[in-house]
Computed example of a mutant assay.
Amino acid sequence: MKTALVHEWLTPKATGGSELVVKEILELIDAQLYALIDFESSNPQSYLYGRKIGTSFLQHFPLSKNGVQKYLPLLPIAIEQLNLTEYDLVLSSSHAVAKGIITRPDQLHICYCHTPMRYAWDLTFDYLDRTSALKGFFARYILHQLRQWDVISANRVDYFIANSHHTARRIWRCYRREAEVIYPPVQVDEFPFEAQKSDFYVIVSRLVSYKKVSLIVEAFNKLGKPLVVIGDGPEFKSIEAIAKPNITLLGSVDDITLKKYLSSAKAFIYGACEDFGIAIVEAQACGTPVIAYKGGGALETVIDMETNPDTGTGVFFPSQTVDSLIDAVNTFENLAPHFRAENCLINAQKFSLKIFQDSYQGFVDQCLNRFSSK
């Protein structure tokens, strides 16, 4: 059986959870890889170095290596130009347009959906609020067209997989399609477990608006407690400008440094409403508890210490405000003496690589059996 795997983009800057899913699918299934753009097969540090990868016409556009999002109106057209007619099975790993690949009726298409296209849905008004009036007029039209295409292209998928129940609900809301929930793989065994914690808090995140890192910094400005911020992005300078001396901004760091801070922190802070949030699980694999916004995938990956004192792995704050986070940090400080690092590790192991491999392969086999019997 000839198999293709389609992802949005492969660049040295794209190293998140969706790219980890692509890597693990390729470990399980012998598939030809396709993407809108590819700058990883020429990157000696990448596991894809030297691999033949099919790409779209966007590969040759100026500055595409820095992100094809700037060509947003062209993404649906570009993904539809990838010719996969020679394959029996098409797998997609989609957080924007990869699911929109065109297939024949006798080809099976299974989509692992990390999120319905955020530009068209959840982040629409966040984007428009930061756009001038003239650009906003055209942006509204483009996003309207994208939403229409996004819903139509969902009908090209035979079976959906969601990375969390939160994402499955969003898939139903946007596309009216059911989705099997298979949590993404987390390299639990690669993170050092440490029961003894130091007296600082840590964030690991891209510094973009919806991650709410500026909100966390403002809260810790008031608390006066030590906070380490790991990550880079467009908000780095604005966050640096408001950060008080108790806050350390490290920018991007290597894996050894990242794991050292994650394992020794008193708690990991997370302010975004994520579809899953792999960093939350990685922190728990280190035995580090989590203080997270009470929404999204965090509700599936963190056990509330207030309601489950014997097995709890973190504390939630109910609204994305400075005061709400401050209250949660104070609650955590009161509960910290009762916290057990082993609970975090036990919880993190529910999202291990082995569980993903077994679940994903099992679901693909099940879909193949259903499809062949029709």
Rank of each mutant, 00 (worst) to 15 (best):
S153Q: 14
Q349M: 01
I101R: 12
A292G: 12
R370L: 06
E178G: 14
V97Y: 15
G136T: 01
K237W: 04
N246D: 11
I79G: 08
I77H: 14
M1V: 02
K222L: 05
K135F: 04
H60W: 12
M117G: 08
V22P: 06
E40S: 12
P62S: 05
E282V: 04
P116G: 13
E8P: 03
S41T: 12
D129G: 10
L28K: 06
L262A: 03
P245R: 13
P44R: 07
L89Y: 04
A120Q: 09
Q69V: 02
D310Y: 00
E274I: 03
K374Y: 09
S94W: 01
D199M: 01
E8W: 02
I230F: 04
P44S: 05
L128E: 11
S132G: 04
I247Y: 08
K23C: 01
A272V: 00
E190V: 03
T167M: 13
D88W: 02
G17V: 08
K354C: 01
L250C: 07
G16S: 06
I280C: 07
H144M: 01
M1H: 05
G295Q: 14
Y210H: 15
L82V: 05
A78D: 02
I230L: 10
A154S: 13
L82E: 05
K52M: 04
C344E: 06
K225H: 11
V315D: 07
E8Y: 04
Q366T: 02
I161S: 13
V68R: 11
L75F: 03
V213K: 12
I242E: 06
A267K: 02
A179I: 00
S94F: 01
A179E: 06
V90H: 11
D255E: 13
Y201L: 01
I303S: 05
S209W: 14
A96C: 14
E178W: 14
D189T: 11
E333T: 12
K197C: 15
A120Y: 10
Q59V: 00
L249M: 15
F332T: 02
A348C: 09
Y293T: 01
G297K: 09
V157E: 12
I53N: 07
Q32K: 15
A31Q: 03
I142E: 15
A243H: 06
W149P: 05
N369A: 08
K197I: 13
A195E: 15
N369T: 06
S319A: 02
L207E: 04
P318M: 02
L36V: 01
F276A: 11
I256Q: 15
S18P: 11
S18W: 05
I242A: 08
F332N: 07
D126P: 13
S92N: 10
T131S: 09
T55Y: 01
V204D: 02
P76S: 04
Y112S: 09
Y87D: 03
G296V: 10
L72S: 05
R169F: 02
Y34H: 14
P234V: 07
A14W: 07
V364R: 01
T115L: 15
Y49H: 14
I203E: 05
I216L: 12
Q361G: 02
H109T: 00
V302Q: 06
A162N: 10
Q69W: 04
D106S: 07
I110G: 07
Q357E: 14
T11W: 06
P76L: 03
D106V: 01
G16A: 07
T311Y: 08
Q81T: 15
S372I: 03
A78R: 03
H114S: 10
Y183N: 10
Q349F: 00
L223F: 12
H95A: 10
